[in-house]
Design a protein around this nucleic acid. Structure first.
Length: 420
RNA sequence: GUGGGUGUAGCUCAGCUGGUUAGAGCACCAGAUUGUGGCUCUGGGGGCCGUGGGUUCGAGUCCCAUCAUCCACCCCA
């Protein structure tokens, strides 16, 4: 049996690869406009990093990691997300000793052993940003503005921005107690998952998708009401900054992030029309994470975008992108004795920044014309006995069907004129 | 990890209640007189009918398993 790509992985081939290049370019340029610089970290890390950084009780760590032992029996893990590596790099290179805040972006494949589904793969791609060294609520607002700007530049405007604050560890403990107190009396009404987890992490019950749980918890206290003065003030400033900048958001009391390290501001972007995996991006503040990973006590905030989901969203909104890699010039070589000479002609065209190609499979002239048409060539250059003898080339405009014979030296200007 | 759907040419699919050399459209290649594309016509190449078992005189068609894929749950980006 032939070998296929492993479950949950896939190949990105033309013409789809052009779509990827298109959205990557827009995203990187937007991030750079906001003052971010790129980092590239390893695709695998010590398993311990993710256990510490992502949280040992999370689903990601407990059941979704690609963990393996190398030949020296080190336990390594294919990265399931990008924040932990960023934090590790920040600490390892003592970046916090320099100018703060540090604004980074990254992009690349992530790995999670999940059941594949629409918008969910085992190897998927994320773009993310991280900022270290500032606790300003206006930075929270700016990072959300970056996220919104990226979506706008991609032509995506039909989305929902959900916002909440999960407070600091103090608020959370306070809230946890309140929640447990409220859930305990009616725990029989909850699904088995929630019954199992409400003691340890009652926050998870809030965004449980089971209807009966949602019904059971209606009227329950919100974390917003348990925020301490500092956290409440922080959240209020974030909201008003967004309002001042005309960013529409939905305060979502049920939004709690799945990763343990989040504090204060949490946000998610949803595009419902792409299916049940509607979260295109999400992030928040993680003020305790750097310290937790062995660094100094400095705050951080970031978000990640799911590239596959962005593509799904763009595909669901027709006409958003149609990047075509068309050929400028096709060189039809009418006699094989000019094969080598033809390469020189192509070289000259390409040196003038003209996208040019030719046939290598011995096609007839007619077949070469068809081939040129399929490649989307705007111009065909004919190179046959007549032309070579006269020191000229015949240039055919494929759109107007006009043809003219020009001196060798005039070929590039004439073609540039047609392409312009 | 749970539930359901689907696996026939590169792609989209047809193949009636099991019956002889497995089809269509699109795509690909070649022709329709001399060195000319998009339309049309003609011809051609290409399928261990996902894989492995089983039932049967006979299986693309029925049964089981397995793998893959899709949809949803779960989780998340």
């Amino acid at each position: 049996m032939q070998v296929k790509a492993p479950r949950g992985t896939y190949d990105i081939l033309p013409p789809d690869s052009a779509k990827w290049q298109y959205i990557e370019k827009i995203i990187y340029e937007t991030a750079q406009l906001f003052g971010y610089s790129e980092i590239r970290t390893p695709i695998f890390e010590h398993t311990e990093l993710f256990e510490r950084g992502v949280g040992e009780t999370t689903d990601i760590v407990t059941k979704e990691m690609y963990t393996f032992a190398d030949k020296s029996d080190r336990s390594l893990t294919l990265r399931p997300e990008g924040t932990a590596s960023s934090v590790r790099a920040l600490i390892e290179h003592s970046i916090y000793g320099g100018v703060m805040p540090v604004k980074w972006y990254y992009s690349g494949p992530m790995f999670r052993y999940d059941r594949p589904q629409t918008g969910r793969f085992r190897q998927f791609h994320q773009f993310g940003v991280e900022v270290f060294g500032s606790n300003s609520p206006y930075l929270d607002a700016e990072i959300i503005m970056l996220l919104v700007k990226i979506l706008a530049n991609l032509g995506l405007d039909d989305y929902e921005l959900h916002l909440n604050s999960v407070g600091c560890p103090g608020c959370r403990e306070n809230y946890r107690q309140k929640l447990i107190a409220h859930i305990s009396p009616i725990k029989e009404k909850l699904c088995t998952d929630c019954q199992a987890r409400y003691q340890k992490n009652p926050l998870r019950v809030l965004d449980c998708k089971v209807k009966s749980c949602q019904e059971a918890i209606s009227g329950f206290p919100y974390i917003y009401d348990s925020l301490c003065d500092d956290c409440r003030e922080h959240y209020t400033k974030v909201k008003s900054a967004l309002e001042d900048n005309h960013i529409k958001y939905i305060h979502d009391n049920n939004l709690v992030r799945g990763l343990d390290y989040y504090t204060n501001t949490a946000f998610e972007i949803h595009i419902p029309q792409i299916g049940s995996q509607s979260a295109v991006g999400g992030g928040g503040r993680y003020n305790g994470l750097v310290k937790e990973c062995g660094g100094p006590d400095i705050p951080g905030i970031g978000f990640a975008l799911g590239m596959e989901r962005l593509l799904l969203a763009l595909d669901s909104m027709p006409g958003r992108i149609q990047p075509e890699v068309k050929l400028d010039v096709f060189l039809a070589v009418l006699d094989e004795k000019y094969n080598s000479q033809a390469l020189q002609v192509l070289d000259r065209l390409r040196n003038s920044n003209i996208k040019a190609d030719r046939d290598y499979n011995g096609r007839s002239m007619k077949a070469q014309m068809k081939y040129a048409d399929k490649l989307g060539a705007q111009v065909v250059i004919l190179m046959g006995e007549d032309e070579v003898n006269h020191g000229t080339f015949t240039i055919r405009n494929m759109n107007s069907r006009e043809q003219l014979e020009v001196e060798a030296a005039q070929v590039i200007p004439v073609i540039k004129d047609i392409l312009a």
